[in-house]
Nucleic acid binder design. Structure first.
Lengths: 208, 208, 208, 208
DNA sequence: CAATAATCGAGACGGTACGTCGCGTCTTGGG
DNA sequence: CCCAAGACGCGACGTACCGTCTCGATTATTG
């Protein structure tokens, strides 16, 4: 069984005295592989990532990939997992400002093909690559949702929002609108989109 | 050049007097193919539809499929096109009631994997199957959008809504929320979801 | 176990009434594969034949090759076996004329890279591809030797040759000289080479 | 640029006073490498020599090999060159005796797989390893040929042989027969083979 | 009835990607 | 400098599908 890419783990658990014999694995190759994987992912989604193309683009032999990850799914897990899309903790200024910052980040992500592909991956084919999906959910989707939920809950506490709001509904309203508008919205997001969206949503949440 | 699946057309224009010689195509087989295609589409999306599997599930030879449609994309166009997801014209009662009716329909669609997969298809793999995409856009997405936009515009005319609202933003807010909530919303939509969503959105659009 | 390319066998044993279901194997593809294999063999010997290159040169998928032969060795066996290098039966005129005809054929073969490669294959690497080697020995080398031995033995019977000659030694003398002279003989065989060689060898075999 | 294996030269020219710093190269390792190379060459020819196997058989790290020779071809050149197959100068007794001595040496070589492989190498894979080939030609093939040609030419001068003989043809007749008989001659050379061959060849060369 | 032709299962076709293996080469750490 | 161990790029291997195409045999309609 594969227990993850163990190089750093080994180095961490056993300090410099006890490392593997032989030539160490090239960090440059590892980086090039991840980079190539992400580029191909950005171009063609999950299905656009084929190990042979990754190897060619990274200037690396296929064996160098399979030495590190047992298969395509693990490579994808590692590469996409390394993207760190987690939303930053909000500043805590006001609910409105925090949400605007978050939505602006979502909007700017939707413009970057790397992150855009994550949306579409998340929306589509969950059958193949179930481990990739659950990793993505656990380490990207849920953290992001937690941040947004946190802001909304804090708004309730501070009285900025009505106490009886449906937190999840509001959250989906923000993220879903960005998704729906972004994909096939044909033209780029206009300036001020984030404010407009947040204000419209908040107007339904403000205390009466 | 392929000029569409002409069976029904031929049968319509020239009834029993001038039909083709030889054994007629079995409507049962055609139906079974479409049905199998839709089932596989529901299970695995566009990529889950492979002709071999369709043939097996429909209990039909692969040739029987290629006799009718020149390829996978056309089969999908036909199958998905046959799903008729167009929203019905709103009754025109009130903006709120109309929108609730629409959202309820969206919600019930989002519960059926057949329709849910349409969302995900629409969100993902766009470059492959461009004809499928443009057919879907023309005959499903745009009609639906037109209906929703119509309701919102009528609301502005009747004064139910503020005159300066962003029609498209509001539309995306409705559809996007349903999509985001539906996809990986884990549990079914709660009763009253449509009212709740529409009210929340409308509260941002109501005249002050 | 693989029992040879069974297409023709099946057709032979069971006449036209009982053939395999499904699309029959393309004879054109088979021919192109063999042709490509022989071309690559002529260019690079056994090691120059790689299945991927054969497929590319023949304009054929790799599966089409593996459907017919279980691996590279069998492909080589079939391709090289199809070359039919067996020497023709001698006319029986005189031993001298028969041997000259044979040596002229050996010499002309040594000029054709396809046959030249057979010499070098026969000389080299017998470890890998032992089945190829034994097939080559059985169906090419030994038949050829048999022909030459036959001519020499007949010469003994007719009194053209001494009765106490060493048939095999004389045979190796003919074939070995062609091989040694041909390979790295640097320049082409001169006209009259066959006569010269045969006369020189025969002068040691003539009755005193 | 690689300037040859300079170890022994260096050690010879500069004795203990000016040797290289650090641990000196183990002559035992060098010997073991050459020995292993020759063994593998005897077993599997040029293609049977792979650096990994040489290192394993010699009980040596691969680096130890690459420190001494820049690659496989140079290793082979060194190993095979160390075999010293050059024929000894003939005694000059009589042409027949000299040739018999030479052929006996060829025969005994052909029984040793190390030397037999040289024949097959010479006959086969020429384009790869061109440097190995030209070294072999220059330092093994041509010297040997020169010796045989010398004996034959002397025979012409002394009147032992006809003046119009084709020296090269006769030479190839001797060497080629040994090669052809040796390779896959199945059983060992019989006693008296050399005399028999030389007599048969000479009977075509003797003055009438 | 006989001709016609569309039906069916089955499987071959070219292609692309997979994951593995072995090669010749290079690069560590420790002795 | 030596040695072991093992990573590196490369390229071929044999497999598994995919979407497409093509066969022989069957079956139902039409003339």
């Amino acid at each position: 069984m594969w227990k993850g890419n163990t190089v750093s783990a080994d180095l961490a658990q056993a300090d410099a005295t006890a490392r593997r014999p032989g030539r160490p694995r090239s960090e440059a190759a590892e980086h090039a592989i991840i980079e190539a994987t992400l580029e191909l992912f950005a171009e063609g989604g999950v299905e656009g990532v084929c190990v042979e193309a990754v190897a060619a683009k990274a200037g690396v032999g296929k064996a160098t990939i399979y030495r590190r990850w047992p298969g395509k799914e693990e490579l994808l897990i590692h590469a996409i997992g390394s993207l760190k899309t987690a939303l930053p903790e909000p500043k805590g200024a006001s609910v409105r400002d925090d949400l605007i910052a978050i939505v602006e980040l979502l909007v700017s992500d939707a413009a970057d093909p790397r992150y855009m592909r994550q949306f579409t991956m998340w929306m589509s084919e969950g059958q193949k690559y179930p481990r990739l999906m659950s990793m993505f959910k656990e380490s990207v989707v849920e953290p992001n949702r937690r941040v947004i939920r946190g802001v909304l809950r804090r708004g309730v506490e501070t009285g900025e929002l009505r106490p009886d709001i449906d937190v999840d509904l509001s959250m989906f309203c923000l993220t879903g609108t960005v998704m729906a508008r972004g994909k096939h919205g044909e033209d780029a997001f206009p300036a001020g989109f984030a404010e407009q969206l947040v204000d419209q949503v908040l107007s339904g949440l403000a205390p009466r």
